[in-house]
Design a protein around this nucleic acid. Structure first.
Lengths: 153, 153
DNA sequence: CCATCTGGGTATGGAATCCAAACCCAGCGC
DNA sequence: GCGCTGGGTTTGGATTCCATACCCAGATGG
């Protein structure tokens, strides 16, 4: 695959949006229901100007919507919420969380567990092929170039 | 969840390793069989010193092993290969790729397809709960704090 | 009306990173 | 010995990061 252009890959395109220390954590907090600038800033401990830039980028890329909202009898504020495209990152988030739980558990075990609200069972990410076979980390897979690929140059 | 320490989360711990523009792409190339420093450097277009640092970090974190190897009759070289922990990132990689294929497809459609070698069917990442229910992006889920969690301070 | 508080930012300046390009070193082939 | 190649390290300038300080608009209080 080294013959194909590195930047034309979907992983590269996604990494261009999420590929810095904060974006992933911002998205995580948005999943967890944090919506306001100040709350994000304090919870993450990120510098304010960096958070401004990250949020602007995520809005630009269509993962986050910035909406005005007015709590009862207070003045108008902004809130940041995930768009459907942003919510589609849940699989990525859970995959990251699963990896961390397995390989960087901390002394007291995993800190959080994501549960299916209807049945209470834990949610995890995994791979299957379209024919229904489970793919574990030892299963052989192969990458096939499609018309959308471009040769490196 | 905003009451819990942001850094104690498994997503944060994983993002600390993968959270920059290059690490994810390095891991991707290693998955795709690129093993040598120069090949990585040229394919990714990353500055050499940055690649040196990223690889050192990935080795440090146990995702990558640096091994000497001697091709027939040539002198000894190094190669970089994923460890089992590194290979466990496949779910993350596929989830990133799936998101990019869906939301950043490019004009000519997805550039690559990952296939199960045994049956040829496409591989994708998805979420299920331990009870076997499929979780899509509209399914309600809840995050439960475990003993490993820490309150923010 | 004036002062104050609060959310959501900008502005500023120093530290850390990134990048490209140059340089270095060891082993081989000649 | 002389150059070529893989795998780096060095260097200097451009970005980005971070903490802190500052700013502005709309309540709120007097």
């Amino acid at each position: 695959m080294a013959d194909y252009d590195s930047g034309t890959c979907s992983i590269a395109r996604t990494a261009q949006i999420l590929g810095d220390r904060w974006s992933v954590l911002v998205v995580r907090d948005l999943f967890n229901g944090v919506r306001r600038f100040d709350a994000l800033q304090q919870h993450l401990g990120v510098a304010r100007d960096v958070l401004t830039k990250r949020l602007a980028l995520l809005v630009d890329e269509g993962l986050v919507a910035k909406r005005p909202y007015r709590p009862e009898g207070e003045r108008a504020r902004h809130e940041y919420v995930l768009t459907p495209a942003g919510r589609d990152l849940r699989t990525v988030m859970v995959a990251l969380m699963d990896w961390g739980d397995t390989h960087r558990p901390g002394q007291d075990g995993p800190p959080m567990s994501l549960r299916h609200r209807d049945c209470g069972a834990e949610i995890h990410a995994h791979l299957t092929c379209a024919a229904g076979h489970e793919i574990d980390s030892t299963t052989r897979a192969e990458l096939v170039a499609l018309p959308g690929a471009r040769l490196a140059g």
